[in-house]
């Protein structure tokens, strides 16, 4: 018989192995992130004071777009080759397998963006105090992006022009995380404590972790029949 943990780690292991065999694809969201942030000084002003004022928001928005870009692929590739059906017909609970897929997806798309963000903070002259809350906030925030995004990705999995629709569905839901995330960095830069904001962000992430896998599993059962 299959086991719960076997199936859970089996899914993570498979998705990570596939990602490792397409390493080039892994870099694409990162380059996107880098290019968007490069456009900011070109489009606005290279003056460090102005850049620093906009850095928290710009980095967060670019990170949001970069993860959004990769969201498409969460279920779509498995749907296209038919392996999604095997996932859904497993006797193991679907929400757990979906959670495994989300975790694997976050490891290859969200985490690199988080690790990359200090470099972009440097490029946008983010004051030193902002780096830690940026890293912490993006870690929690990209997790929420992946979790909530999974619901949208599941709903649009079988649709032909799903990716634009997907952005339309999930971006409004990202608003609170963006607000909490950027203000945590802003408060740190302004010399205020950011613990409370970070706690709100953590609470939002925990809450999302609680509901999103179930919603995404339900969405997948619906979306696969698009």
């Amino acid at each position: 018989m299959t086991t719960l943990s076997g199936a859970f780690f089996g899914v993570i292991h498979r998705d990570l192995s596939i990602a490792m065999r397409h390493r080039g694809d892994l870099l694409n969201p990162l380059f996107f992130f880098l290019i968007v942030v490069t456009l900011v000084p070109l489009g606005i002003s290279p003056e460090p004071a102005r850049l620093a004022a906009m850095a928290p928001g710009m980095i967060w928005i670019s990170a949001l777009l970069a993860t959004l870009l990769a969201l498409d692929n969460l279920f779509q590739a498995d749907f296209a080759d038919g392996s999604l059906v095997h996932l859904m017909l497993s006797p193991q609970p679907l929400w757990l397998l979906v959670l495994a897929k989300i975790i694997a997806h976050w490891l290859v798309t969200g985490l690199p963006v988080v690790l990359f963000s200090p470099l972009l903070g440097l490029m946008l002259s983010l004051p030193e105090a902002g780096f830690l809350p940026l890293l912490l906030g993006l870690t929690l925030g990209t997790a929420v992006f992946s979790l909530l995004g999974a619901v949208g990705a599941a709903l649009t999995v079988a649709l032909h022009k799903g990716s634009v629709l997907l952005s339309l569905l999930v971006m409004p839901l990202y608003v609170p995380v963006l607000i909490f995330g950027t203000s945590a960095v802003q408060r740190a830069v302004d010399g205020m404590s950011y613990g409370g904001v970070m706690a709100m962000l953590a609470a939002a992430s925990a809450f999302t972790l609680l509901i999103a896998p179930f919603a995404a599993a339900g969405a997948l059962k619906v979306g696969i029949n698009g």
Binding site: V11, I18, D81, S83, H86, L87
Partner: peptide
């Protein structure tokens, strides 16, 4: 169930594909 799409990951080997499936079913 085997659908009209093979349900195999092209970047994995047949053995890896079957091993993954045997964790689910």
């Amino acid at each position: 169930f085997i659908g009209h799409k093979p349900g195999l990951k092209l970047s994995l080997t047949p053995r890896e594909n079957l091993q993954w499936l045997s964790k689910l079913q």
